[in-house]
Design a binder for these strands. Structure first.
Lengths: 211, 211
DNA sequence: ACATCGAGACGAACCGTCTCGTTTCATTCA
DNA sequence: TGAATGAAACGAGACGGTTCGTCTCGATGT
């Protein structure tokens, strides 16, 4: 379960200090939350963690890389805390619209949780400009969540609630992307009413229903 | 037409050197294109523009601010080049789906134009993390384009092609946001087929059409 | 034993501020 | 009209401060 290995680091060794690793994660997340991403420095993280700078440079390639792993660790920890065998998934009550609305409401709450907001904003921003990091961010954090929607949409297709020729991977973007963009770029407010509306539009379209 | 005034700067005066301003815009855009945003520095811009650092600090508050105005200037210039009285708008042939698909295809092309890609990526990224700049970016660049969709959707509503209770500002996000997210976060490929599909899903929904 | 550890010195790069003379330009006055 | 004037912006770059990433140090711990 543990041991994320990044691309380049891998100097070698099992002598690595677990205590330092955790202290670095904690310091990085704390600093980003307190002073923001741009003013979070490697030197600051090292000092706060009570660690030599070399210990950071030995195992990570950049500030963004440290924060990415710290955030991945936080996410894993959070999902472990949510229950030992609780696997997050989208409910299937048979009513696709209701299920999607329920999950999106949870997402809205999570997007507003300050514990997640600043680090994920920082990572998303870095990913926009740094394609390599962006791909890791998307692959490890975003894509797994999106696949849950793919599964749920496929189930709905089998239940005849979604047209069979619809591509689930594109369909999910009809509600995920608008929410993501409003959050990321501050292009509009985020509310339960908003996400409910998105689901309705996505399912039934904006054209008149009786053609 | 000229004279963008930023929020704070305003030291005073009409003695401002137009030549320096343009040289700074050019240097900023060139550097961002060549070495990327993070390695573009104020000192670098000043040197490249043949300008003293103070001249930059006098008129702009940050690297992001310089680049934002440079990009705004580039956009204005581009739309002037596109024709003296050519006002960009969404066509209205009476066929909403076709009109949207046509405009989105143009957008796809533009998103892949390297002249725009790197600076707008950099600005979008900065806007994610820097809310103040983000709002200017959204207000001055993004929102005006989105309003064109609002107008077109409203026309479609009057023509009975879109349900009257639909909120046009939310409707447009069904095709704009997915495209924006794929581009910004590299979450998927961008193609004409993709945007065509988005329009179809948005207009008619993903649920079976005959209920 | 030996690689990693905490600590911090080191030069380089930029930061943002601050003088320098120099240039530019609106105003003043011949 | 058209030279002289003076204030503000200008190019250049020195300056101290911060952070970078690299590099020694013993000390630690496995």
């Amino acid at each position: 379960m543990a041991a994320q290995k990044s691309a380049q680091p891998a100097p070698s060794s099992t002598r690595r200090s677990e205590k330092s690793r955790r202290a670095i994660y904690g310091a990085a997340l704390a600093l980003v939350g307190e002073v923001g991403y741009p003013r979070t420095t490697i030197e600051g993280i090292a000092a706060r963690a009570g660690v030599g700078k070399q210990t950071i440079y030995r195992w990570w390639s950049s500030k963004a890389d440290v924060l990415l792993e710290a955030f991945l660790d936080l996410s894993e920890q959070a999902s472990r805390d949510a229950g030992p065998e609780y696997e997050f998934a989208i409910p299937d009550t048979g009513d696709l619209a209701a299920d999607l609305k329920a999950v999106l409401r949870l997402t809205v709450d999570q997007l507003k949780d300050p514990r997640f907001e600043i680090p994920s904003r920082a990572l998303a921003a870095e990913g926009v400009v740094n394609e390599q990091l962006g791909r890791v961010f998307v692959t490890k954090l975003l894509e797994p969540s999106l696949m849950l929607y793919v599964d749920r949409v496929r189930a709905a297709q089998e239940a005849g609630q979604v047209r069979p020729e619809v591509d689930p991977r594109i369909a999910l973007e009809l509600w995920v992307s608008p929410l993501a963009q409003r959050w990321l770029q501050h292009t509009g407010p985020i509310s339960y009413e908003y996400t409910d509306t998105l689901v309705d539009y996505a399912l039934y379209g904006i054209a008149p229903r009786t053609r």
